[in-house]
Nucleic acid binder design. Sequence first.
DNA 1: TCTTACTTTATAATCATTATCAATTGATAA
DNA 2: TTATCAATTGATAATGATTATAAAGTAAGA
Lengths: 153, 153
Amino acid sequence: METRIDRIKKQLHAASYKLTPQREATVRILLDHEEDHLSAEDVYLLVKDIAPEIGLATVYRTLELLTELKIVDKINFGDGVSRYDLRQEGAAHFHHHLVCLECGAVDEIQEDLLGDVEGVVEKRWNFQIKDHRLTFHGICWRCNDRSSQDPPQ
Amino acid sequence: METRIDRIKKQLHAASYKLTPQREATVRILLDHEEDHLSAEDVYLLVKDIAPEIGLATVYRTLELLTELKIVDKINFGDGVSRYDLRQEGAAHFHHHLVCLECGAVDEIQEDLLGDVEGVVEKRWNFQIKDHRLTFHGICWRCNDRSSQDPPQ
DNA sequence: TCTTACTTTATAATCATTATCAATTGATAA
DNA sequence: TTATCAATTGATAATGATTATAAAGTAAGA
């Protein structure tokens, strides 16, 4: 069976890049933390556990490379840090995010909710859409539940 | 007639802040460049023309303050800079953006296209939406027109 | 083995933003 | 007006993320 890493290796080769040990270690960390939204620093600290000799600059370069190849997406939630998010295999568009203003959690919506909206934008604004970023800011289900359980004061 | 500046002055006073000359100069620049998406540095350079003694830190502080009061929105298009965008008066939500990958232009969609989508998200993910960010990346109408006029090679 | 291009590491440099602190200003009461 | 006190400002230092640089390492082909 072909693993996810194998397929990423092929994508690199197709663009004439090698899957060096450092790059592989970085990709493994991303795969192991698919749910999270890691900053370059986060990735660096995690990669150091499995490849202690790696340098921070290499992590940055690798993440940049993976972004170029659309294997990961680089996002920015407004704190001063870029975060890196593995794209679903075969996904044409970037998934959406729910950022909780109370607890800071970031949840993902894999489903594409923008089909209709994109149709409108393409037609009405004569804009040829290549990708999108959609983030909702608000109160997540966890915090919602918690506050509805609170006794009224 | 009450001007836009007057109303902003009231908003500041309501939160017990003053409209100092520096703040006023900064707001004027934002009003004069409503269509643009200025970085703090951009604003600083423009403000210096009408208030030469102003400091960069004051501009940052003012933009931060205006963001807190929801008079402007702070956005980030992925280059390393925050940009500041006047909110439409009375708008509950932030407007959408079209970023052209070819010429870099940033156009605005004032209309709220997310009504239905937000309904779905609130119900299905039990997420209480406070605000949103929606940006499309693609080719703008100007570049579309230009390339359709190009002779096929 | 030799060559060449690619990659990495460590570190310095850059750039946006934030913190600090003394000086200034504005509003208010005496 | 003057005294007072908190808010605000400007200059500058500090921070923190990211990028550039240069020397050394690595892999693959001739």
